[in-house]
Design a protein around this nucleic acid. Structure first.
Lengths: 124, 124
DNA sequence: ATATGAACAAAATGTTCATAA
DNA sequence: TTATGAACATTTTGTTCATAT
């Protein structure tokens, strides 16, 4: 059946936010879980946001379930030969990803407007 | 002891957002729970946000626990004499409220910056 | 130690129920 | 019906544990 709970439509969820970044990072460069985590933590450090490793993995798994990404297990370069998991778009994944990004763009715009309204209403 | 969980510092919570509005509304006009809910729903309708009544009540109760607001139970005007609960600042409440607003202003600015960064990083 | 992932626990928030006028 | 509030349920998210290299 349908959803058990209907969201009130407040700000977007962390999970969706991370999925957006993971798609963009997949477009740009090959990375694996913990490297992505490092990168995001560095990027967001000035903004006081420090995602934890589970959220990143769950977001990646979500994207796999969505049929957008697939795993590519690879032996890590260098002296250590530990297996790490890289990600690539599936066949139809890139198209789906673009649609998801489009939706997220609208959502981010909405959230920005909501926050700007709050600033105006309460401090304007 | 300290907190059981440390927040990752993603976007602000709905509860805090509502508390900010409730303080500002208390500064401006006398309202009670469900009227506030109506007002907020109208205000945020264009933004796709529709808070539910429990969240508003919980936010009001939070502000009472914070020592910022107090209840003023009053018979409602008009032909019906139903009791409604208005809110006013406590003795020290107004000062505390200003401090809270100051913190929330910083938080809203941070969230706006985070969202703008996401737009830039993923769609720039 | 790094890496991935699952299992678990707590916090945030949405829905339903209770009470009253 | 409107109004307030508590109780309950689900979702979201953070912490810990398991496994492997």
């Amino acid at each position: 059946m349908g959803d058990k709970r209907t969201p009130s439509g407040f700000l977007l969820k962390q999970r969706a936010f991370l999925k957006l970044y993971l798609i963009t990072l997949t477009e740009q460069e090959r990375l694996y879980g913990l490297k992505i985590l490092d990168l995001l933590r560095q990027e967001f450090k000035p903004f006081g946001y420090r995602p934890n490793h589970s959220e990143v993995y769950k977001a990646l798994h979500d994207l796999i379930e969505d049929g957008i990404l697939k795993q590519v297990k690879t032996k890590k370069e260098g002296m250590k030969y530990q297996e790490v998991v890289y990600y690539r778009f599936t066949e139809e994944g890139y198209k789906k990803a673009q649609l998801y990004k489009k939706q997220l763009k609208a959502e981010l715009d909405r959230c920005e407007a909501l926050i700007r309204k709050a600033i105006k209403d309460n401090f304007g």
